[in-house]
Amino acid sequence: MKDLYFDTAHMLGTAVLLLSFALLFQRRISGVINTFALQATMLALAAAWQAFVQDAPHLYVTALVALLFKAVAIPVALHRIVRLLMIHRTVETALSIGLTMVVGVALVTLAILLVLPVTSDSAALTRENLALALSVVLLGLLMMITRRNAVTQVIGFMSLENGLILAAIGVSGMPLVVEMSVAFAVMVAFIIFGIFFFQIRERFDTLDLHYLESFRGERS
């Protein structure tokens, strides 16, 4: 039975990681948003499974928060923003998709090489989970770097936060307060981002952050 616990947790964690890759792979904004919703659903499943395995009821709350906010509320709101701003075109990438994937694999390897020696005295489940979570965080950062559009950058940020939650649920004894405050911080950040979208759009007629660079004095 122990094996089944481990394998299922591992499987769900890997599903979250694979969906991070799928986020990097998508070209359409609506596709990116849907993939993000799927990732959040997987995260909720992983949290529920950990709650069951660790016998920690507060993780069910984490799962519920992830499901309600990140799998339903935020994607719906993002779809609405995309429709209002009429930006459901192709995602503009700063790096080609193939190259992004290669960098992504390198980051996953880096995360594994980094986490495994550091945590050599913890349980196997925790170690794998931490490696997966760190990979998701790094891939979220990569997504923020390689996308030019503000909406997709925000989704990169949200998926980074998915990685943080994944790390938190894998460690037994993480208090609920921490997770709740992270979740609400993301919610607040999302609202601020939403306002920013409209401001950027109003001023520059685009959400391509490329145009902002001239205002920082990087381009003549």
């Binding site: 792979f25 694999v105 996953v108």
Partner: peptide, 25 residues
């Protein structure tokens, strides 16, 4: 198509990496 197959290649690489990781535990 190259991106589609790069996805397959990526999954293959990740599969091998994870196999080594779970073997190493």
């Amino acid at each position: 198509v190259s991106e589609f197959l790069a996805g397959a290649l990526l999954l293959g690489v990740l599969a091998v990496i994870f196999l080594y990781v779970s073997r190493g535990l």
